[in-house]
């Protein structure tokens, strides 16, 4: 487990690598906004609290990490690269014809990818099933599921919320990347889903709200006590975080990065003096 400062450095490298990959993807474009919002969330998880080991990927007692908002692959793959699941060569094959690192992840446990993504609203149920298994077999492992705030519009999310509460799955942690934007605009404007912590509590979960770009707060929140309830970490984030022209602009949900903008973005991230390091 890394110290907080190391995780902050890891997040910075992830952000830079994400920009490289998006630039290399060329005209196909890539999901940038929702990846940049999730960088600290995943760094704090993979670099921080999660018990996973790239040298022993199939180890039964590993924590399970499932990605519901699978369009955040740029943050996901770069995190997996950082902790050794992916080689640089593999990472650089991102979104190339025939490569396995596709725009939405394909299941590949050996490379740390527990669950394929691309259809929203499914991962929390699957995570609940895994958490139930761990409970019934009295295993120590925890199951983390990263959800988008837009994803929470899926009814299936609320079905699994009820379920996890009924079975008192306190080994299940839902992390909601609350970046307030979805493909078509703000979550409030598109579907009106807000006050997520209130809703999660109403469905029987313990909810904790944190600054989703503060790795210290995130690492602490992931380990919060819940009195037997499942835990929802609502991470308030900025879509496109770290790149001024992408921040809070839904058009960067999925877009193409040209050379000029790429250089500008990289420079901004490199020069960023650690506002996230509080």
């Amino acid at each position: 487990m890394m110290q907080k400062e190391q995780v902050v450095e890891m997040a910075k490298r992830m952000r830079l690598k994400a920009l490289d990959l998006a630039y290399a993807a060329g005209k196909t474009g890539a999901h940038l906004g929702g990846a940049l919002s999730a960088v600290e969330i995943l760094a704090a998880l993979y670099g921080g609290v999660a018990r996973v080991d790239a040298k022993d990927p199939g180890k039964e007692e590993r924590d399970r990490i499932l990605i519901g908002k699978a369009h955040c692959v740029l943050a996901y793959y770069t995190a997996l690269y950082e902790i050794g699941y992916l080689t640089e060569e593999e990472l650089n094959m991102f979104e190339q014809d025939g490569a396995f690192l596709t725009g939405h992840p394909q299941k590949d446990v050996c490379r740390g990818i527990e669950y394929a993504g691309g259809s929203l609203g499914m991962a929390l149920s699957v995570g609940a099933g895994m958490a139930l298994h761990a409970k019934r077999r009295a295993k120590e492992q925890r199951v983390y599921v990263l959800l988008g705030d837009g994803e929470c519009e899926e009814g299936a999310v609320w079905e699994s919320m009820l379920f996890a509460s009924k079975y008192r799955l306190d080994n299940l942690i839902a992390i909601i990347d609350r970046n307030h934007l979805q493909s078509d605009g703000s979550t409030l404007a598109v579907a009106g889903l807000d006050r997520l912590s209130e809703k999660a509590e109403a469905f029987g979960w313990k909810a904790v709200c944190v600054d989703g770009h503060d790795v210290g707060q995130l690492m602490e929140a992931y380990c919060a006590g819940t009195d037997g309830r499942p835990l929802a970490v609502i991470a308030d984030t900025v879509k496109g975080k770290g790149v001024s022209f992408m921040e809070n602009d839904p058009s960067w949900h999925h877009a193409e990065l040209n050379e000029e903008l790429y250089r500008k973005a990289r420079r901004e991230v490199e020069e960023e003096d650690g506002a996230c390091r509080r």
Binding site: M161, L162, F163, S165, K166, G192, R195, E198, K199, E201, A202, F203, G204
Partner: peptide
């Protein structure tokens, strides 16, 4: 079958 919070909380939580 599925106890979780109260129905009232869930509906008011939804607004």
């Amino acid at each position: 079958i599925l106890r979780a919070g109260s129905l009232k909380d869930r509906w008011s939580g939804m607004g």
